[in-house]
Design a protein around this nucleic acid. Structure first.
Lengths: 339, 339
DNA sequence: TTGTAAGCGTTATCAC
DNA sequence: GTGATAACGCTTACAA
């Protein structure tokens, strides 16, 4: 079972190395006889072409990169990321691409540069919007390596992107609370600098306005998506805002922290207080009580991102597309009629 | 800013291509003058050697693979996996290795074969024990590509591995319950086929025995690590076992499901029932109530696995090592004295 | 210390 | 339809 290469296969099949290459790449112009001779050798010896050599010759690696921020422990554990990644991964594999994962933080410009400048490394890159800096995006836009963004950044209309309809999702979630009779509804949001936050805030505010409720500034908090922030913000609001009876959290993790703060203060959900989350993470079903949340198709986002990227790799001049996926409200046990 | 290659750099620096190569690889026997000429060209043009070509020449890719089962949604979201992966990833990057992630399920023998047979692909592989089949392990052992296992499989003593001391961890957790005065203590375990489960069960049983408590068969459940299983098992036990006052769950996710079942049945934790988990996931801190759990150094496990692998890559004949990491009991709010 | 030249295992371009 | 042969960009004897 020694190591074969294309020449040895050629010799065994009594053809030239070019014929072997043609057979392996499904190129035309090879006789049935030659083809079958080659194939039987390939199968007998279980020969596989060396992909490194192939990459060198074709300057395409069939590897795509995923660039993701290094988040704190808490966000890492929330499952959003893994689900997204799985969507990307499976779609890539289906298309014969391998995936290389890189975490990234702002000090890692070097890694990034190497990524791009060693060009042959990657056929394309998927960037997860959060934490990706202007610099990063700019660098990619300047190079000609295809890239797609998960999330959306209005500054780079030329970069294809995949996102949920954040406005619609936040609107649905808030409106659900409104329909239940709530009037004093807090809104907890994540990362300040991302357009996604802006959209979610607008959805929240519009749902309120359309119901004749005036959004109040001190009922709104913007911080991070962590459980920690959810907990601390709720803690504070419990002390300050006696009237508040419900809250819309812009992530399930935020909601998880919120639920804990409520529990610690003996406020029962949903009897005394309603909570709705955002994401529809697998764990949200097991929160106490099971969380009402607007689910976004996280796996689908990843899958779509991979699809767009591969499309762009295969046809660099393809029209730039910005996909927007639909969220869905999942009503569970953390919300109830205002009594 | 056109694309450079080693020859162009050589020309610009007025040296031969070998000198450039030597400089870039820190080989000796280069005059200071030549070195500095090369370096200044490299910096001016920001030249980076093409890693594919380099791989072809050296037949080492500086890529390591992580082989992981495709779990159901629930387990994916539990954060264990991500933390482990992060540990692996960061240690690899620190050593100049890139990471390629592959999910794997039993039908994917093809992918696996390609992985190995295209040999030049990967310098080494880290296998996550769960879900890795005999076939997989055997295949790797037969090839000469270095591999390390996260978890432990006694059938392959020749494969280096990293694990926590599962016995010790389970013992500590159970003993904690015993010390609080509990006598009727359930034990919920994960995957049947893994040695880890056996060790955790023994730790649980020994802690009981040493306290003069007889472990009962119907107080023990073995299934999966999912929240779902935790929930259903607890649900059943609530109906069947009136005496039970505490449970040791062999994962935090199992505990999360357990907590929900208890909540749904109006059994308050820890006043009427104590729960201890296993893993110390970031989310365990935000469960309701915050979970008492034996934390395993998940990130550290990944880090250690990467260390062992890289060591083995650099020295194929290194002694086989089986690392065993220490767990730590985190007492939070889900356990209390039996009243 | 430096340069020449032979690989590494493919694909791709041409004659035939 | 087939087979030389030249890339692809690098490392590494070996010779100078």
């Amino acid at each position: 079972m020694e190591k074969l290469n294309i020449d040895k296969v050629a010799k065994l099949a009594h053809v030239s190395r070019s014929v072997v290459s043609r057979v392996l790449n499904n190129h035309p112009n090879v006789s049935d006889e030659a083809r079958s001779r080659v194939m039987s050798v390939v199968e007998e010896y279980n020969y596989r072409p060396n992909s490194v050599a192939r990459s060198l010759a074709t300057s395409s690696t069939y590897q795509i990169g995923v660039l993701s921020g290094i988040f704190g422990e808490e966000s890492l554990g929330n499952g959003y990321w893994t689900l997204l990644y799985l969507g990307i991964f499976e779609e890539c594999i289906r298309n014969g691409y391998y995936v290389r994962l890189s975490f990234y933080n702002s000090e890692m410009k070097k890694e990034l540069h190497d990524l791009i400048l060693n060009e042959h490394h990657l056929d394309g890159v998927i960037c997860l919007n959060e934490e990706v800096t202007e610099f990063t995006l700019q660098t990619f836009e300047d190079s000609d390596i295809p890239i797609v963004l998960v999330g959306h950044n209005p500054k780079y209309p030329e970069i294809p992107s995949v996102d949920v309809d954040n406005y619609d999702a936040a609107y649905k979630a808030t409106d659900h609370l409104v329909q239940l009779g709530h009037k004093d509804i807090g809104g907890m949001f994540g990362d300040q600098n991302v357009q996604e936050t802006e959209h979610r805030m607008r959805g929240y505010q519009d749902a309120l306005c359309n119901a004749g409720i005036e959004p109040k500034d001190d009922y709104t908090a913007v911080g991070s998506y962590s459980q920690h922030d959810g907990h601390d913000t709720m803690e504070e609001w419990i002390k300050k805002h006696d009237d508040m009876t419900a809250v819309f959290c812009a992530s399930d993790t935020l909601a998880m922290g919120t639920l804990l703060a409520l529990f610690e203060n003996d406020i029962s959900v949903p009897e005394q207080f309603s909570v709705v989350g955002f994401d529809g993470l697998p764990i949200s079903k097991y929160m106490i009580p099971p969380l009402t949340t607007v689910a976004q198709p996280t796996y689908g986002k990843g899958e779509k991102a991979a699809k767009l990227l591969i499309e762009k790799i295969k046809n660099k001049d393809a029209r730039v597309r910005h996909a927007s996926l639909k969220p869905e409200l999942l009503v569970r046990k953390s919300t109830a009629k205002l009594s």
